[in-house]
């Protein structure tokens, strides 16, 4: 019997079922398939009274300003620099309390012309605690501080602050969960100097 004849003898159902079973066997240890439906390619804008409801954090960007005064009373910025402060209310909607440093990639003021301002500091707006804890379900008002060059942003500029959401994924490298962030909104705030 030729190979072609042998292949013809395989029932149609087997042609469908076997590849599906093999694909399922491959997908199973990788966590299965996850499909999404594209809703829109537009990144939505969020006003200061609007909250981005995310999978890990709910974010509301209230305000942004330039200042030489550190909100926690620490030293002034280096010569030629200024503090950009973004005030945001954050609610941890996951089950795991976090240090505020977990928010580093979730509220990102972009540098005009490309890139972002990098490492930030987190200060609790109410009592100026640095790097506070963000516990589940407790809205927390934060001043997020970036030290930026004096000429990077000017008073009166509209700054399109990026807001990110994320989805959990089991880590293959170490135990636990990692969060994959994605851009989910922008908050355009007019920066002033205080």
């Amino acid at each position: 019997m030729t190979l072609r004849a042998r292949l013809r003898r395989i029932p149609l159902l087997a042609w469908i079922a076997v590849p599906l079973a093999l694909a399922a066997l491959v997908a199973w240890p990788l966590g299965g398939w996850d499909t999404v439906t594209l809703v829109s390619r537009e990144v939505p804008g969020f006003a200061s009274n609007q909250t981005l409801h995310g999978h890990r954090f709910d974010l509301r960007v209230d305000d942004a300003w330039l200042t030489d005064e550190h909100p926690a009373g620490y030293g002034a910025p280096e010569d030629g620099n200024v503090f950009l402060i973004v005030r945001a209310e954050v609610t941890n909607v996951s089950d795991l309390g976090e240090s505020a440093s977990a928010l580093e990639d979730y509220i990102v003021p972009p540098v005009p012309g490309g890139g972002d301002f990098g490492t930030s500091q987190f200060v609790l707006a109410t009592d100026h605690t640095t790097l506070p804890v963000v516990n589940p379900g407790l809205p927390t008002l934060l001043d997020i501080l970036y030290e930026i060059p004096d000429d990077a942003v000017a008073p009166g500029d509209d700054l399109a602050i990026e807001m990110y959401d994320s989805l959990p994924r089991r880590s293959f490298v170490y135990s636990g969960i990692v969060w994959d962030e994605f851009l989910a909104g922008t908050a355009v705030r007019t920066v002033d100097r205080r």
């Binding site: 089950d95 795991l96 309390g97 976090e98 240090s99 609790l124 009592d127 605690t129 790097l131 506070p132 804890v133 516990n135 589940p136 379900g137």
Partner: peptide, 15 residues
Amino acid sequence: GMLRIDDRIYLTSRR
């Protein structure tokens, strides 16, 4: 330390 209620974890405050 921390507080656990069901699967939710609350961390100790640094305030």
